[in-house]
């Protein structure tokens, strides 16, 4: 099997080389309509793969979720405030109640995402304003890529950083201040996630701020407004749809983020708004339910797909709103 694969890989790599060599060196350049049709069909099929993937995602999530909702009522899933997925393996076992209420998970996700957004939105927005309006081209040329490195760092690295560097520091500060900060507090995971999504806010906002035409600024400055007044009263309102959509996309990124919360957030589902406590999130539960041994018909494993569907719907809605905001409120300057 492995050797077959290696041969296939070699062939796959050599085909483009051979084809391009033949093309460059053949005198006969007469097109063959059959070949062209064939290539065209291949191109169309390739472009359909993205659609097929989406359909595959929706169908697989829906199919498994329907099986889950045969075992657990959708009403319980959407309204119960208890999440305890331990189902009893045998009838006589105690302790395994198996209640699947997604509310505490959603609340935990929202809490951590909200912390992340309170870090990322002000920092990202002000950084974007500074880079677009004030910074010298030289500073901008190295600061913008440097900020974007933050988005390129693998999330598992942030998770490690949150769990082993930020969380202990927070806990020690808490002890000094007399606060009881859990070692898997929402604050640690949320603030590190906030650092991660700064570039999602700043890069997009920077683009839309720069897209506001020079003439608007000149008009405002010409009337005697200072630069910051121009930015606040002219540039930002003009760029607002783009900024809102950047923030929404960053929020959807925060909600779907997995590794940081798996490594730095807790496992116990709790309904709380206290950022110093440990909360769990939708993505954490998907991972805990599916990693390790699993029997494929239990409500426990199927619950992960229902959570996945929930996650997919929430992020899709956010993306859709972001898209609509830009489409509806964008001003066309030309």
């Amino acid at each position: 099997m492995n050797t077959i694969f290696i041969i296939l890989a070699l062939v796959a790599f050599s085909i483009p080389a051979i084809v391009s060599y033949r093309w460059r060196h053949s005198i006969r350049l007469v097109a063959n309509p059959k070949v062209e049709l064939f290539v065209r069909v291949l191109l169309i099929l390739s472009s359909l793969i993205a659609v097929i993937t989406t359909v595959g995602i929706v169908l697989s999530l829906l199919f498994e979720s329907i099986r889950f909702f045969n075992l657990v009522s959708p009403l319980e899933f959407l309204t119960s405030t208890v999440w305890s997925p331990q189902t009893a393996l045998r009838g006589d076992q105690v302790g395994g109640s198996g209640v699947f209420g997604s509310l505490p998970l959603l609340a935990g996700t929202m809490l951590i995402s909200a912390i992340a957004m309170t870090v990322a939105v002000p920092v990202g927005l002000f950084a974007a304003i500074y880079l677009a309006e004030y910074a010298t081209p030289r500073f901008r040329n190295w600061a913008k890529p440097a900020l974007e490195i933050l988005a390129g760092v693998p999330t598992v690295v942030y998770g490690f950083f949150a769990a082993l560097t930020v969380a202990p520091i927070l806990r020690e500060t808490g002890t000094v201040l007399g606060l009881d900060i859990a070692s898997e507090s929402a604050l640690a995971a949320g603030s590190v996630m906030g650092i991660m999504i700064i570039p999602f806010v700043s890069s997009l906002s920077d683009d839309v701020i720069r897209a506001v035409p020079r003439s608007l600024r000149d008009a405002s400055l010409g009337l005697g407004a200072t630069q910051s007044e121009t930015i606040r009263q002219v540039v930002l309102p003009a760029a607002l749809p783009g900024i809102v959509s950047a923030v929404l996309l960053a929020a959807s990124r925060a909600i779907g983020e997995t590794m940081i919360v798996v490594m730095a957030a807790g496992l116990a589902a709790k309904l709380t708004a206290n950022p110093l406590e440990a909360v769990t999130t939708v993505t954490v539960q998907i991972v805990t339910l599916l990693v390790g041994d699993q029997e494929f018909d239990s409500a426990k494993t199927l619950a992960a797909f229902a959570l996945g569907l929930l996650l997919f719907c929430v992020t899709l809605t956010l993306n859709f709103i972001a898209f609509k905001v830009v489409q509806r409120y964008r001003e066309q300057y030309d």
């Binding site: 659609v51 993937t53 199919f63 990124r253 997995t258 998907i286 599916l290 996650l311 997919f312």
Partner: peptide, 28 residues
């Protein structure tokens, strides 16, 4: 236009959902 919207949406789907897809279709 639908394919284009689709591709943009796919780029914003959380990565863990792709894992669920892989588990449901490629493995099971």
């Amino acid at each position: 236009a639908m394919i284009e919207v689709n591709i943009n949406n796919l780029a914003a789907v959380p990565s863990i959902v792709f894992g669920l897809l892989g588990l449901a279709i490629f493995l099971n």
